[in-house]
């Protein structure tokens, strides 16, 4: 007597191993160029840069290259210019972000109500964003220059300055130069993101609230703010990191001076690498900046989690 096993259902997939591998690899083939580029031109230098932080690498010294352990970091601990740059970075980052955000939000609210010529006004208000950053820096540096720029004369006329001088060359006021340029250049970023978020709020919510008797301030508080909050939070966080790393305006307008009063960490790194060609020290500073930014991002994530769990 023979036993026949119950007919097993046919298997769904009888492709050959080669066909299966081809199907599996398809998305990887599409992504491969991007991955190769990022690994070769961003991750490898990143790893190299981290290793430089522990080595003596000076471009003009062919005998440099030795492993020096934590030497750079010890130097860094005693480097007054670096400490100054840290403070300047905080000052630069937070005043830029806060001002960009506030004015960007106001601009978005202004542009959110219909009026004749809105499209044109919007395009003109957003135009600074398209101006290359180096040109924004130069342009504002010229605006602050009493020889060709109007601003010192206006400030003098208003009694703010005792004589029409360049605020960029006064250590007390120099930082305001790059900050003003940065605000001018960055308002559109916040205005654009906020405007998009505003336009995504369903209009009937406002109508319902109005019927329920809510005034304009109450409507703003109970509808606009909660709807905008997530966009605000995300764009502020990302922007903070971005601006902390953004050295172009400072390099162009003041080069960190006068007396290092506008030097931020990112521009300090550039100065060490570009002017002093001390790649080892520059990389050590860069590593510290990286760690600080990571810590900041972590802090944000943790804050977000605790806020989410509390609700």
């Amino acid at each position: 007597m023979t036993f026949y096993p119950a007919a097993a259902p046919p298997d769904g997939d009888r492709r050959t191993a080669k066909q299966k591998i081809a199907a599996y690899l398809e998305p990887w083939l599409y992504s491969a160029p991007v991955l190769i580029l990022i690994v070769a031109i961003m991750l490898v230098p990143l790893a190299l840069g981290i290793s430089y932080a522990f080595r003596d690498i000076r471009l003009l010294n062919p005998f440099s290259g030795a492993f020096v352990g934590l030497k750079h970091f010890r130097e860094l601990a005693g480097d007054g210019a670096f400490r100054g740059a840290l403070v300047n970075t905080l000052w630069w980052t937070f005043s830029s972000v806060i001002l960009q955000f506030l004015f960007g939000l106001i601009l978005a609210l202004l542009l959110n109500r219909p009026f004749r010529g809105r499209a044109l006004a919007q395009a003109l208000c957003f135009l600074p964003w398209a101006v290359p950053s180096f040109l924004s820096g130069l342009d504002w540096a010229w605006m602050f220059n009493p020889v060709v720029g109007p601003i010192p004369h206006w400030l003098y006329a208003l009694g703010i300055l005792s004589e029409p001088s360049n605020i960029l060359s006064d250590p007390e006021t120099a930082m305001w130069g790059p900050i003003v340029a940065n605000v001018w250049w960055g308002i559109p970023f916040f205005a654009i993101t906020m405007l998009a978020a505003l336009q995504a709020i369903p209009k009937d919510l406002y109508e319902a609230a109005e019927i329920d008797g809510a005034g304009p301030i109450e409507r703003f508080r109970s509808i606009t703010v909660p709807f905008l909050a997530p966009t605000m939070a995300i764009s502020i966080l990302l922007r903070t990191v971005w601006i902390a790393n953004f050295a172009d305006l400072i390099i162009v307008m003041t080069n960190g001076g006068p007396a290092d009063r506008t030097q931020i960490v990112a521009s300090y790194i550039f100065t060490q690498a570009f002017r002093r060609l001390d790649f080892g020290y520059a990389s050590a500073i860069a590593l510290v900046l990286l760690v600080l930014l990571l810590a900041y991002s972590m802090l944000i994530v943790v804050l977000r989690q605790t806020m989410l769990t509390r609700h």
Binding site: S31, V34, L35, I38, I41, M42, V44, P45, L46, L48, G49, Y52, I57, L59, V241, A244, N245, A247, A266, I269, F270, A273, F274, F279, A282, S283, A286, L287, L289, L290, L293, L294, S297
Partner: peptide
């Protein structure tokens, strides 16, 4: 992982790469 990698490249300071990039 790819998305994470792409996002990572947006977070770290590009000035960090100036020196190693030159050497490479």
């Amino acid at each position: 992982w790819i998305v994470g990698l792409l996002l990572l490249t947006q977070m770290f300071p590009l000035v960090m790469l100036i020196a190693p990039m030159f050497k490479m």
